[in-house]
Design a protein around this nucleic acid. Sequence first.
DNA 1: CTCGGTTGTCTAGCAGTGCTAGACTCCGAC
DNA 2: GTCGGAGTCTAGCACTGCTAGACAACCGAG
Lengths: 192, 192
Amino acid sequence: MSVHERKQREQAERERLIVATARELAEQQGWDAVTTRRLAERIEYSQPVLYSHFRGKREIIGAVALDGAAELAAAARAAASAESDPRARVTALALAYLDFAEQHPAVYDAIFQLDGGLAFAQEDTPEPLKDAFAALLETLGEVAGEGVEPGLFTELFWASLHGIATLTRAGRLPREFAEQRVDLLVERLAVV
Amino acid sequence: MSVHERKQREQAERERLIVATARELAEQQGWDAVTTRRLAERIEYSQPVLYSHFRGKREIIGAVALDGAAELAAAARAAASAESDPRARVTALALAYLDFAEQHPAVYDAIFQLDGGLAFAQEDTPEPLKDAFAALLETLGEVAGEGVEPGLFTELFWASLHGIATLTRAGRLPREFAEQRVDLLVERLAVV
DNA sequence: CTCGGTTGTCTAGCAGTGCTAGACTCCGAC
DNA sequence: GTCGGAGTCTAGCACTGCTAGACAACCGAG
């Protein structure tokens, strides 16, 4: 039995290696550079090995997305917990979110932009994704305002952040005045 | 000379055909299905002909984006002009924007999501893109509120709409309650 | 009305993509 | 020590964007 267990351990180990390498490659050179050949070469196995762990490239992206979602949730909670005033918390959360998107564009894309074959906003949504939303909800729910469903408010606030993040990164929004935009967003949307 | 002119006319005609066909194909089957081979087949020419009009696929996407931006601007102005009350105008604009994104996902992607090799938010930004932003500014500038730069406010509002549009279309946001989200956005962001 | 040259178009091919069938090797169980 | 199966690789498929070079068609000059 222990042989079998060792093999399983090695299997899991290699799976982590694949995901970590894919992420690294994506962050260094963008997702376009993450080809199955290059990925295989980096992990020092042949291409077909990838397919014994994942159904295809899409599932690898999905795996990176799940990892990233957990980190995003942690970053959001860390930023929020550093502030006591509700409004300051929201600002900190927003800045942390945008910072994550800026610092880890490839991971952000894996989560929100690319097709990782993941289900969103459904019962079978993977836990890390649900939890990332929950992390936002914890802080944003407090400033939804009376008569406004916290979930709906969180969705809206999140969508706004997502729009800012993606448009900025794609060069559609000037980086100038980024902070003013966030301030204005918080000032108007958040009800104290 | 007239021979030369005729050739130029035919050239321009065929260029329109390429762009229109690319758009049609993208709207029918998504941009992934828009390959140079398929596109060439549909316009009943061989692949290299595409490259005598455009440097590559990216420029074709860019051309579709410019067409689309003009339409988006027109749709925005049409929606806004149908309302006299500033707040109602903003709501109408927002709904028109989201409706455009929903009805023409491929074109919307060409403008805001894909790389069409276009410059944004710069001096050399193509006119249709500038004009689309101007169309938003016309209506949104009115409700920026005191002491808030209309351009900045428009960018923020637009980013929010963009976030809603993309997250909804990617299945990240439930279509349910879409209208409530817009109402909330307008209610909070727009200052009458 | 013919002929040369330009202009336009096509065929064929390159290097790359995601993915897979089938051969092979190696290792644990008997 | 041998056998069977798990694990891995080589080689290849059908596709991608893009291009070099052969070819044909047509225009203007004589």
